[in-house]
Amino acid sequence: MAKKMLEVNQLTTKYITRQGEDVYSVDHVSLDIEEGKSLGIAGESGCGKSTLALSLMGYYFPPLHYTSGSIVVDGKDITGLDPDVVRKTVLGTDIAYIPQAAMNALNPTRKVGKFIEDVIKAHELPMDKKQIREMAEQRFARLGLPVEALDKYSVELSGGMRQRVVIAVSTILNPKVLIADEPSSALDVTSQKMVIKMMKDMLASGLVKSMIFITHELPLLYNVTDDIMVMYAGQIVERGSAHEMVFDPVHPYSRGLMRSILVPEEGTRDVKLTAIPGTPPNLKHPPAGCRFAERCRYATNACRYNAMPILEFAPGRTYRCGHSVEHLREVYASEDEE
């Protein structure tokens, strides 16, 4: 069995609102990724996927707070470490992050090369300016980025280039886990493809040892990651391989998501788009039972009042639902016949 790069156990984090209320937007999340693998996280906006990305780094600042659970990166538990130790030895080296708004992720008044210098220096690595420059140049050349970009400010780069530069900067220290939060949603399809190719190449060549990819674009996720995990209201509701999740989703919410995929392919026009009525619950007062029950057409009273654990029903496949897998599949099959 391949080495586990990231193991997250029952991680719970919360936001404390200005009114002092606790909002548990990541609730007992467990996940793991093996070396060389990628995991996709899907879900509606507000389901907690971006918060999960931030929570996984073990570095918290208000309004986000750590509550419980553990994060183990390549055998090292990073929860409970001193924040400055996390900053110096985990961020950028163990876990790197590509933010949602990568267009504005670079300091507008700092040249790319200088910023890389700041990153290296923040980790107190024994390198002088010349060595850092050499390393940056080599890395840019390897990733197919123009070396001149190092002497430019972010405003001087085009959107797609800026995005790829951010990825190059994030991964400059060869992180064990790369967390990418919607890295390509602001780009047009051609730039998106270039960004994705670059990220896949980095994973394949081992520059990055594993990857978490967050997006609401399911066709993209399907093509990028090995596994897909669906989040709903701060919890994981289902996990499986990308292929299984797209073609054989078990959880009613995952099924709703997967049935909303629209791609320019034969057959798409015949698909019946499924609308999921309603909105996700308010996490200030989460429902006692299944969090999706309010919107679920198969929900029973038991669903609404009994806490719902997550269960493994096949190797590598977990789900969180009050109905059995067989039952759900039967229902789906009869629906598809209609």
Binding site: G278, R297, A299, T300, N301, C303, L311, H323, H327
Partner: peptide, 16 residues
């Protein structure tokens, strides 16, 4: 697995 199984949806519908 200890999960309540109820194949018949309860007649009472939610607002949604």
């Amino acid at each position: 697995t200890g999960i309540l199984k109820d194949s018949v949806p309860v007649g009472q519908k939610t607002d949604a």
